[in-house]
């Protein structure tokens, strides 16, 4: 049903820490591995061993270079999957009702058996979070691992998205961003989490934690300078210092 629910009971989503992501693509492949055998049809690959291999992925990691005003360039690895927007334009454009946002947790899903593969939802998504599977002709997108997070067949600790469970650097966090007291909400608060392309008005649930300032010219230079105060002027002086220092041990 492509009317968005007026309000969702929770806002489940991801918080991605751009300060910590090393760009290893672990989340990309883990996502592919879980979802190709999980919710819906497999994530197919075309020409997998050929000249132009391509396939369906629900999560991809970009790498950017950011030129700072001081002339230094900073590298940021940037994972991106569906942001489970509150005002999800991908849902409202869908002619079939295949795309919908869940009332209970805000997860945006595609009901594949209703999807005609028109592609319009992918056009409507600003973030490139939807991919039309070329073998099945249905729209695929991040499910927030809806078949994991409530799955009674999994141990409780494992009821998190596959990408979160696998991220070696711990750069991905999962939780209820609608609950201000959740760990993820607190993290977003503490680190100044941001929305992507806020001017699109999609109100993404997923948040990104910006990289911390890097290569800061230390104001502490004043604190640090005395640390390197020479103990002596020459080698002989140094031995003298050594003698005294050893006495004190």
């Amino acid at each position: 049903m492509t009317l968005l629910p007026e309000k969702t009971d929770a806002k489940l989503g991801l918080v991605i820490d751009l300060d910590t992501c090393v760009g290893c693509h672990a989340c990309v492949v883990s996502c592919k591995g879980w979802n190709t055998q999980g919710y819906g049809v497999p994530l197919s690959d075309q020409d997998p061993y050929g000249g132009d291999p391509s396939g369906t992925f629900l999560n991809r990691v970009h790498a950017y270079e950011v030129m700072r005003p001081d002339g230094q360039a900073q590298t940021t690895h940037f994972p991106k999957s569906c942001l489970h927007c509150e005002d999800a334009p991908c849902v409202t454009v869908c002619p079939t009702g295949a795309s919908y946002k869940r009332q209970e947790d805000g997860i945006v899903l595609v009901n594949e058996s209703a999807c005609i593969g028109c592609g319009l939802c992918a056009w409507a998504c600003p973030y490139g979070a939807r991919e039309l599977d070329q073998a099945a002709g249905v729209m695929k997108k991040c499910t927030l691992c809806v078949d994991r997070i409530y799955n009674d067949n999994l141990p409780e600790v494992d009821r998190v998205p596959s990408c979160v469970r696998t991220c070696p650097a711990g750069a991905r966090h999962f939780g209820d961003l609608g609950d201000p007291d959740s760990d993820v909400s607190k993290l977003v608060e503490a680190r100044g989490g941001i929305d992507l392309m806020p001017e699109q008005g999609t109100k993404p649930v997923n948040k990104y934690l910006p990289p911390r300032p890097k290569d800061q010219p230390l104001e502490e230079i004043d604190i640090l300078a005395p640390l390197l105060e020479p103990v002596a002027e020459d080698a002989r002086g140094f031995i003298g210092w050594l003698d005294k220092a050893l006495e004190k041990l």
């Binding site: 492949v29 600790v157 494992d158 696998t166 991220c167």
Partner: peptide, 20 residues
């Protein structure tokens, strides 16, 4: 499907892209 073993001392449950 392949996932990391949470009890394992090396990876404590996580897995890299190749592993997955």
């Amino acid at each position: 499907y392949i996932e990391g073993n949470r009890d394992h001392p090396v990876n404590r449950g996580v897995l890299c892209a190749k592993g997955s």
